[in-house]
Simulated scan of single mutants.
Amino acid sequence: MNYIVGLTGGIGSGKSTIAEFFAELGVPIVDADVVARQVVEKGSPLLAQIADHFGNQILTEAGELNRTALRALIFGNENEKNWLNALLHPAIRQAMLAQLQAQTAAYTLFVVPLLIENKLTALCDRILVIDVSEQTQLKRASLRDQNNQKLIQQIMDAQVNRATRLSYADDVINNDGEIAQTRDLLRQKVLELHHTYLALAEEKR
């Protein structure tokens, strides 16, 4: 497997923006959220199993997974959440590994919100944490998702805390500034890290 840089950060930290900047430099991205959607695509065996278990109420009229309906069904129901995780997590992990192994570039960016929580750090040669304050997380996530702050706080509480996340970091990008002002600075930081990762990947070969 080639050199793998794990990118993580809490909700609202700006992981997608940073990943986009790496993608602009030609770095292949394996994104856990994208893989999680792929394994339950319309017509997939996993989606059929989920529908058998929860009923067709979790399907849209087009036959795709209605994530909002599913989230409402498992929210606060530990047994159902555990059932779903036991079904999905092995399939997602297998698909992620297959995508990582298929890469031929010098290094791959492995974007996983729950990299630490799901014990995926062992797959990474290096870990990049996107760091922001909790106040910034709440503010950005609320604006982005129109979610209520209580729900966002619950998501944050389910993730490792900021200090724990930073303790795993080899590299940190602080993304606490105003987005418009910092895009160029963020791009510059990504470019610097890109050269670092290319050099480290070369050393590993």
Rank of each mutant, 00 (worst) to 15 (best):
N82H: 08
K81Q: 09
L186A: 09
L25K: 15
R162K: 11
L200F: 13
S44I: 02
P28F: 06
E202I: 09
E20P: 01
N147P: 01
N82M: 05
I92A: 05
L47Y: 01
E41I: 01
K150G: 06
L84W: 03
A72T: 06
D184F: 01
A86I: 01
I11T: 13
A180R: 02
N175E: 06
I179P: 03
A180Y: 00
Q181A: 12
R165T: 06
Q94L: 13
K139Q: 15
L128C: 12
I173Q: 02
L120A: 15
G43Y: 02
L143W: 00
L114A: 07
G43I: 05
E64K: 04
S133G: 10
R165I: 04
E61Q: 11
N148G: 05
A199G: 02
S167W: 05
D52P: 01
N85R: 02
M96E: 15
L166E: 05
Q103L: 11
P28H: 07
R162N: 03
D145F: 02
A72Q: 13
Q146D: 07
G26H: 07
L70E: 05
K204L: 15
A122N: 13
T136I: 13
A201C: 11
L120I: 06
Q154C: 02
L47T: 04
G9T: 03
L7G: 08
T164P: 00
L46I: 09
L84G: 01
T68R: 10
T121D: 09
N2Y: 04
R126K: 15
A36Y: 02
E78R: 08
E80I: 00
E134V: 12
N85K: 04
F75R: 08
K139V: 08
Q181F: 07
D33T: 03
